[in-house]
């Protein structure tokens, strides 16, 4: 049960990652400006990337299954 939920979340994470990193959604962030002194688009890409890593980190123990007997 717990694993199925995690599985669904991992699929949702994957699909969200694909959607956010590709056009047309990514085009919304093609902003030629800076944020905190950094290029906004670069910041956006690294932010999505970091979010994906955090999600994968959270889901990994649940998806990995029980420890070796």
């Amino acid at each position: 049960m717990r694993q199925r939920k995690a599985r669904d979340r991992s699929l949702a994470t994957l699909l969200a990652g694909i959607a956010l990193l590709l056009p047309p959604i990514a085009l919304l962030f093609d902003v030629r400006g800076t944020l905190f002194g950094l290029p906004a688009t670069l910041l956006y890409l690294f932010f999505v990337w970091a979010a994906l890593i955090v999600m994968a980190r959270l889901l990994a123990p649940k998806l990995r299954g029980p420890d070796r007997p």
Binding site: S10, L11, L14, G17, L21
Partner: peptide
Amino acid sequence: GLEFITIYLGPTLVFVGWWW
């Protein structure tokens, strides 16, 4: 420019979706 980052985003997506 920024396109170098795609070379690392693709594998990231594959590994985030490792289960599938």
